[in-house]
């Protein structure tokens, strides 16, 4: 009888790991808390840096799991996860008990809740939205201010919930800078009359073709980049957003009225991941993500033998990195099962 692997989380990492494990001849169950798989891909419209439709990546991933007969369980959360001798017992909220020889945790990330940065007034001021809200607008093909009008002056705030002690996150989420650049270009394409401002602390364009995209945003799309952390947003009588920022390179504070302010929400360890860490005694780091046994050559290994990590439950990653990390997890699982 083939060995059984439970994969927790049906996002990018979980789908890739489940499909690949199954292809290796293992019996695979994929547990997903939502009613559909795909995770954050469902919310993102176009991907950086090549601007391809996210559904293409989703189709690839779901195709992989379907073709390889992964057993999918949706609307499922974990109530208990124990290791007994050489196998795992996974108890779900609907009363099922799955016995597994190995477990892959791919619980992913949550977007930072932007309302926690109180000074930006997300959830209070009508025209303050997040990067995810903007993706919804892209999908609908309609980018509007709260009153339905076309926004002309638009600001983008980088590092919302990242690199911010006040938000409890010291780390960089890595993807918000490039998301900001991507979204700025997309808005400019949609509304050539609009003026875009990105407010950044550092431009961290450390990925293939990211820097080139930044340059394109400046040169082709006339996006303005102003170095400084936005300190507060407020609302005028006609529901526009006034921001205060220091233009650090001019050495002067700057004040500007905008029609729309977009917050680049960072990535955080998911609530589901935190719960699972408690249930299964998994180690987490100061950044609250799962802590793998070795940063360099054990990034998939957990402190529990036979339980492995895949993807952004260990740190912020882009899709390319997430898929690579999931494949590495597959290789760890196969090795482990061969030797156990």
């Amino acid at each position: 009888m083939s060995k059984h692997v439970v994969v927790i989380g049906g996002g990018v990492a979980g789908l890739e790991a489940a499909g690949r494990l199954s292809r290796e001849g293992l019996d695979v169950s994929l547990l997903e808390k939502d009613s559909i798989t795909g995770g954050h891909l469902n919310r993102w419209f176009k991907l950086f840096p090549d601007r391809r439709d996210s559904s293409e990546v989703k189709d690839y991933l779901e195709g992989l799991t379907h073709a390889n007969n992964v057993k999918l369980f949706t609307n499922v959360t974990i109530e208990k996860l124990n290791r007994d001798k050489d196998h795992f017992s996974v108890l779900t909220n609907d009363g099922k008990e799955l016995i597994a020889d190995a477990v892959v945790v791919a619980t992913g990330f949550d977007l930072f809740k932007s309302s926690r940065k109180e000074e930006y007034g997300y959830g209070i001021y009508d025209n303050v939205i997040t990067s995810a809200d903007l993706e919804d607008m892209f999908r609908k093909g309609e980018i509007t201010a709260a009153d339905g009008t076309v926004p002309k002056k638009i600001g983008i705030v980088h590092c919302v919930g990242s690199r911010d002690e006040k938000a409890g996150n010291l780390y960089c989420s890595k993807l918000c800078c490039v998301t900001a650049v991507k979204q700025a270009i997309e808005i400019r394409e949609h509304y050539p009359e609009s003026t875009l401002f990105c407010f950044y602390m550092d431009m961290r364009m450390g990925g293939a073709y990211y820097e080139e995209m930044y340059r394109e945003a400046q040169e082709v799309w006339s996006v303005n980049f102003i170095r400084g952390k936005v300190s507060e947003a407020s609302e005028t009588i006609d529901k526009k957003v006034v921001i205060k920022v220091e233009d650090t390179l001019a050495g002067r504070p700057l004040k500007m009225t905008l029609d729309l302010l977009i917050l680049m929400a960072g990535m955080e360890m998911s609530e589901g991941g935190i719960k699972l860490a408690g249930l299964a005694g998994l180690k987490t780091g100061d950044n609250r993500f799962f802590e793998a046994t070795d940063h360099h050559f054990g990034s998939n290994k957990s402190n529990v033998e036979g339980l492995f990590y895949a993807g952004t439950c260990t740190s912020p990653m882009n899709i390319t990195e997430t898929i690579s990390h999931a494949r590495a997890a597959v290789s760890e699982v196969v090795d482990y099962l061969k030797n156990s």
Binding site: R215, R252, P253, K255, M256
Partner: peptide, 25 residues
């Protein structure tokens, strides 16, 4: 001493952008 972006005149910048696009880079 705040830079008031709403009221400042940026016609000089626009003049340059038009003739020397590398200014944006």
């Amino acid at each position: 001493r705040q830079i008031n972006y709403d009221s400042n005149d940026r016609s000089i910048a626009e003049y340059i952008y038009e003739r020397e696009p590398s200014f944006r880079r």
